[in-house]
């Protein structure tokens, strides 16, 4: 039981980290709390499903299509809506939340309701570790979470765009004097954040079905991890994912699964009381931003 809890706790942590990574990236760079994040996640799932089942494309093309599609959606959201309210935190939240609602309800309106909306798993079968069995898809989720974290680490340190991201995140005005255009980087951060949401959707959704209401759940999880870890901090995201992921799994295994949601909420409440900027956060005005 304990080994099972540790294994599934790790997978749960990886899922939370994957889900929160895109939200955190966008906020860390452009300062925009993208409340349409859950909707982008669901959009990616449905978009991949449409490409696979309606257009009949090979699955790898659908995966790439969904990631690129989510990135384009992020750019469109930035230039059409976010740019107009940028810098006004409350308006940003309301605008992105409204956008998210619109996207999700559009899917509902166009009859994307039911149990047939699923994405294929990457590899069939499961691995046994003594009495504990775990399916390959969950292992892939954990591997992709690790790979993506490593990629982001190197990307933000050794590529031109990555360095520009960090420059804007550190000091927008100084970055401007170096010729880094903040709006372009803001749009790119939305694109990257959305693409990361798509990656999370592509690997996590094959575990179950794509449901519109799943978007809200993803947003809540992303918010919980980011608030606890500290908005904008990659290390914070990883630590918070592990803390919340294991706390949830231990709660489910040794108490009751219906207390799991309380874990995230209690973690948010405790962090906001003790250290409002999060465990590793540098955003001093967290309460105003979220």
């Amino acid at each position: 039981m304990l080994i099972g809890t540790l294994v599934y706790g790790f997978v749960n942590s990886a899922i939370l980290a994957l889900v929160a990574m895109g939200f955190n990236l966008t906020f860390g760079i452009s300062g925009v709390a993208n409340f349409a994040y859950g909707a982008v996640y669901i959009f990616s799932g449905f978009f991949a499903w449409i490409l696979l089942n309606s257009a009949g494309l090979p699955y790898i093309v659908c995966v790439i299509g969904a990631i690129v599609g989510a990135g384009i959606l992020g750019i469109l959201m930035y230039y059409t809506v976010i740019l107009r309210v940028k810098g006004i935190a409350l308006s940003e939240v309301m605008a992105t939340f409204g956008l998210g609602l619109a996207i999700m309800e559009l899917f509902r309106y166009f009859d994307f309701v039911g149990f047939r909306y699923t994405l294929p798993i990457f590899f069939d079968g499961s691995l046994s570790m003594g009495e504990v069995y775990i399916d390959y898809q969950r292992l892939i989720i954990a591997l992709i979470a690790i790979a993506l974290t490593t990629f982001l680490y190197f990307f933000t340190r050794y590529t031109k765009i990555g360095l520009a991201f960090r420059a804007i995140a550190q000091d927008e005005r100084t970055a401007l004097t170096f010729g880094i255009e903040s709006d372009r980087i803001g749009a790119l951060s939305m694109a990257f954040g959305s693409a990361l949401a798509a990656v999370a959707a592509i690997v996590i959704l094959p575990l179950g079905t794509i449901a519109v209401e799943g978007g809200y759940e993803v947003l809540i999880n992303a918010l919980a991890v980011c608030i606890v870890g500290g908005l904008g901090s990659t290390v914070g995201i990883l630590v918070a994912s592990v803390l919340i992921g294991y706390a949830q799994t231990f709660t489910a295994n040794y108490l009751e699964p219906h207390w799991m949601i309380l874990v995230s909420l209690i973690a948010i409440a405790v962090i906001l009381t003790i250290k409002p900027s999060g465990l590793f956060g540098k955003q001093k005005e967290l309460e105003e931003r979220v």
Binding site: Y8, G214, A252, P257, M260
Partner: peptide, 13 residues
């Protein structure tokens, strides 16, 4: 399990 749960490994174990 609360509505929206997507991991049932605890109960299965």
């Amino acid at each position: 399990y609360p509505a929206g749960s997507s991991d049932f490994s605890a109960a299965l174990m």
